[in-house]
Amino acid sequence: MSTLTRPTAPERLVTEQRAQANRRRRRREGRIGWGFFAPFAILFVLTFVIPILVSIRSSFFTEKAAGDSLYGGGGMVETFAFLDNYAQVLGNATFWEGMGRVLLFGAFQIPVMLGGALILALLLDSFIVRRVAFFRLSYFLPYAIPGVIAALVWTYIFSPGLSPINQTLGSISEWLTGLLGNNVDLTIDFFAPGTIIASMATMTTWTFMGYNMLIFLAALQAIPHDLYEAARLDGAGEFDIVRRIKVPMVGQATLLAVLLSIIGTVQLFNEPTVLAAVNPWMGNDYTPMMLAYSSMMGTTSPSGAGPASAVSISMAVIAGILAAIFALVQKRSTR
């Protein structure tokens, strides 16, 4: 406001006072903000920051037997290894193969799961369905089934001898074989190396589609309904409302859902572990998270807190990079 003429002394005083008031207000606002943030901050430090710092520290150490006799020397000594653990991870073909698998998995599974979740959320949010509560529960219920139970369900559904899907497909195949004269086999080997990733994707989608649907649904419900009224007055149909208002307004929810899915993909663990129990060829290091866990549990070499932490921190960094790339791309495209 005073860029054209030099301010007079009183004017300067006023500006000064305003700036001071502004600063005070800022400080007050900051204090209040931190007040609301403090409970989370304290808990976050206790349960995340401290263990993460411990984890980062141990990633720079290895544990070796204290002595050099057959059974060591009655204990382990921690020795500073600097980046050895990381070099071990980054030079480990198993780690990168696992990472490749989960990324391949994510590239197909995330769009399908989130696309499906968004469609279901839009349908439930439209005005045309009754019994929303029932549908919402049906879609969310798989997330509420404990992992150990879901494991039983899926090993049964995929099991070569028992699979109800294959029993049905088998009957159809027989019928077609009789009809066409040549041998038709439609049955699927869910456990074959070529299909196992799709099998995992099916399990994950089943578990998490309803979860993500709830995220979208909550975001849709937060949209002010007068926007719809205004659009309708302008002659927009329901479809236009979905396309022009609803989908753009859930942009932030989509960003969150995608970020969470990327992280979940890099940390993929439950589904491959379940499948590995009945498919030994997968081993206990099929995905990076399985490698980290086995390393922590001492069922692969090298094991211990150091190597396990190095694997998990490497995973976090890769997930972070992917998340950042996605966030940037989304920012660009919405501009």
């Binding site: 060829w281 206990n284 069922t299």
Partner: peptide, 20 residues
């Protein structure tokens, strides 16, 4: 030996291949 639990993964993987 100390560390025998860590031998499991590789043996089982190889056993699956042998079985196939």
């Amino acid at each position: 030996i100390p560390g025998f639990p860590a031998v499991n993964g590789d043996m089982v993987k190889a056993a699956d291949a042998a079985g196939q």
